[in-house]
Design a protein around this nucleic acid. Structure first.
Lengths: 229, 229
DNA sequence: GTCTATAGTCGGATAGAC
DNA sequence: GTCTATCCGACTATAGAC
């Protein structure tokens, strides 16, 4: 996530088309907002990191907040793209009766894994931005939080509800699903990694999280079976 | 960063004039920083929320950053106080040989629970501040992160290492412990609560987290047993 | 120790040339 | 569409009265 490499020397007559500039501004702003927060990322920094001048922010997005919203939209788009296939499979299966347990479990795993891959494998910015989304700038973040719930949490909760044959409103069930996502996001943060010296071994980290998600799912089902007896 | 030139060594019970003001400033600043972040909480807001005038920040803490550091120190103090009894028991037991498994498990549970109670039952500010500490203002937060690791993570890792009879450096073991703490902090955040309509039912939330910690611990031990076969 | 008043800086946004 | 130059408000910090 280098800051200075983004600024390219622009010669008169060779300016990129506006759409390209807009796209680049969103992508570098994502990293800046993720790294320093909304208040911490000044317009000057945002402009410089995208290699544009100050008024470009007003020109393309109306205001700093407009740029922020554009970043949020961009991430929402990304989440939807990545999880849409799994979500479609979930919807299709849940429409049927008598879906085998193994199928439901596989779908749950796929659903979580799709989201996980986004967090763990994509740019550092996506990870940090999503992690930060939970504590910062509440109103502008609500669409993003809604997107996560719509694209990931709700399908998972629906699957779990079917698996344990209880209504989806069950507090414990939903809480557990949220916790899984919460810890995935927490794990995405680089802070703790340093301590255990994993550096950039993303694959290994991903495997640990996968194992954990698997365990969690199993634990939810065991708890539900106990509760019904 | 502890260059608090204005404060004298304070004895419990004997507050000099202004010491009460200082304490109040720290406590309200904790909430403001937790709610709006370092950049988001202006000196005017910090002063107003404590019922003092602007220069009081410079007088008592030298600068805005000085006040921030004082808040961090305050939280570190709080964490140490709350977890010290459990940590002492852990150290005492780990010094012996042949500690029963049940004792080790009970200690692990107590350790996590002490930290958990701090996060879940104390002021909203403590919760949010700790959650935010992971993504924000990295250098000033390092002492706080160190305190969490020293007071909570390290004793837990040592207990787990003894329980599964493997060195504490084992990646998966440590990762799991960090994940437990991470999800506890994530769960402390009020965001998800709203969705499941728990409002202020702290006790219930605490029980869910306790159950989860219990399950997690059990899962770690099962995984370790499998691995040794 | 606490206050008012203000300095000095930096933030977001704008005007208007090209 | 992109630029330079600039405004104005908000911010942190300081000076100095009481």
């Amino acid at each position: 996530m280098s800051v200075s490499k983004a600024s390219k020397p622009l010669r008169p007559g060779t300016y990129p088309r506006g759409e390209e500039t807009r796209r680049r501004m969103i992508e570098t702003a994502l990293d800046m907002f993720a790294l320093r927060g909304y208040e911490g990322a000044s317009t000057r920094l945002l402009a410089e990191s995208a290699g544009v001048n100050l008024p470009a922010i007003q020109y393309y997005f109306g205001s700093k907040e407009g740029l922020y919203d554009a970043v949020v939209d961009h991430i929402i788009q990304r989440i939807s793209e990545r999880t849409a296939p799994a979500a479609a499979r979930v919807a299709a299966e849940l429409a049927k009766d008598d879906v085998p347990r193994a199928t439901l479990l596989a779908l749950l795993y796929q659903m979580l894994d799709a989201f996980l891959a986004l967090i763990v494998n994509d740019s550092e910015g996506h990870r940090l931005f999503l992690y930060r989304a939970e504590v910062e700038h509440a109103t502008a973040m609500e669409p993003l939080q809604d997107a996560v719930r719509r694209s990931v949490v709700r399908p998972c909760v629906a699957l779990i509800a079917r698996l344990i044959d209880r209504p989806a409103e069950d507090d414990l069930t939903i809480a557990r699903t949220l916790l899984i996502l919460g810890q995935v996001m927490a794990f995405g943060h680089k802070g703790p990694q340093r301590d255990i010296g994993w550096g950039d071994r993303n694959e290994e980290r991903l495997n640990v999280v996968r194992e954990l998600v698997h365990e969690h799912t199993a634990a939810v089902l065991r708890a539900a079976r106990r509760a019904r007896r």
